[in-house]
């Protein structure tokens, strides 16, 4: 075991436990967010367990059809992106259980996993052969690529600032006081990364990939039953996993599950609140937005550091 000096088998069990907690948290949280949205609109809203019922229903469907190997692998890749993202990032700082498989270079790996799911989805949705899927995926890829730029720049600024690529060390450096958080020590990098954060959450104004009224729902048009169930799992897992990274990098990480829950919810609500007050960008508008605002801020943050 020279490659992984700190590896122990029990870590796998711990990591699975983390995964389980995070999925359930994501299920309930997205339902709660929808319920809040409904209440703001004067509706009663869905029950908080609706996500579970939908998931179960989709698994219980009797017939399914496959359009080929990539079609099948699309949701698998997407879920791998979400799970991988979570697995290689320490979820709870200082906890032996929920340290997961974080190691010295995990920042780079996390950046990769953010993109991985979209790529897999592109291949899968492409094979399903529906024109809306192809349109949605090409839009989504263009937009995510652009949104990655400010994120990557912000992260580089961060690793320059802390002189490390290890998320655990970055979190460790932010402990102690709220003013040790990166959001106060390096606000420019935070702003740049938050632009990317809002841009990749699949919410308005950056939801042109799904575009419910325009290209019915974009990439998953042909997906149904178990495939859709996989994607649903990812829809609740991936935002949380992504938010965990941001929480670790910019908002001091979390030392307990309670802190985790509160911080993730607040961060998630940022994109929700932005989403409900802004109309949808067209894809070229959002790309321009990222190039015009995200990119200069990112470059500036590197220069400042």
């Amino acid at each position: 075991m020279t490659a992984f000096p700190n590896f122990e088998w029990v870590q796998i069990a711990y990591a699975l436990l983390t995964l389980f907690i995070v999925i359930n948290y994501g299920m309930v949280m997205t339902a709660v967010v929808r319920k809040i949205g409904a209440r703001v609109g004067g509706r009663y809203g869905i029950p908080v367990w609706q996500n579970y019922v939908d998931l179960l229903k989709n698994i219980a469907l009797r017939s399914k059809i496959s359009h080929g190997v990539m079609y099948y692998l699309g949701p698998v890749f997407r879920l791998t992106g979400g799970v991988g993202l979570l697995m290689f990032v320490p979820t709870i700082y200082g906890s032996e259980w929920h340290q997961n498989f974080s190691y010295a270079g995990d920042l780079i790996l996390a950046l990769y996993f953010v993109f991985f799911g979209t790529l897999g989805m592109a291949l899968g949705a492409g094979e399903s052969g529906h024109p809306h899927s192809a349109i949605g995926v090409s839009r989504g890829l263009a937009q995510v690529t652009m949104a990655e730029l400010p994120l990557a720049l912000g992260v580089f600024a961060l690793s320059l600032q802390y002189q490390t690529l290890d998320i655990t060390e970055i979190v460790a450096a932010q402990q102690g006081s709220i003013f040790n958080w990166t959001v106060f020590t390096n606000p420019l990098a935070t702003v740049a990364a938050m632009v990317a954060f809002v841009g990749t959450m699949m919410r308005s104004p950056f939801d042109v990939a799904m575009a419910p009224q325009e290209i019915p729902i974009g990439p998953p048009t042909e997906y149904h039953s178990s495939y859709l169930a996989l994607m649903q799992t990812n829809r609740v897992l991936f935002p949380v996993a992504k938010t965990v990274i941001y929480m670790n990098l910019f908002f001091g990480g979390a030392t307990s599950w309670a802190e985790f829950a509160i911080k993730v919810f607040c961060l998630y609500m940022i994109s929700v609140v932005i989403g409900v007050v802004h109309p949808r960008f067209r894809v070229e508008q959002s790309i321009r937005f990222f190039l015009k605002w995200g990119l200069p801020i990112g470059v500036l943050s590197i220069l400042v550091v």
């Binding site: 409904a38 609109g41 004067g42 509706r43 009663y44 809203g45 869905i46 029950p47 609706q50 019922v53 939908d54």
Partner: peptide, 9 residues
């Protein structure tokens, strides 16, 4: 808001 079928799933 008046009928809100979402609450029934």
């Amino acid at each position: 808001p008046r009928f809100d079928a979402y609450r029934y799933g």
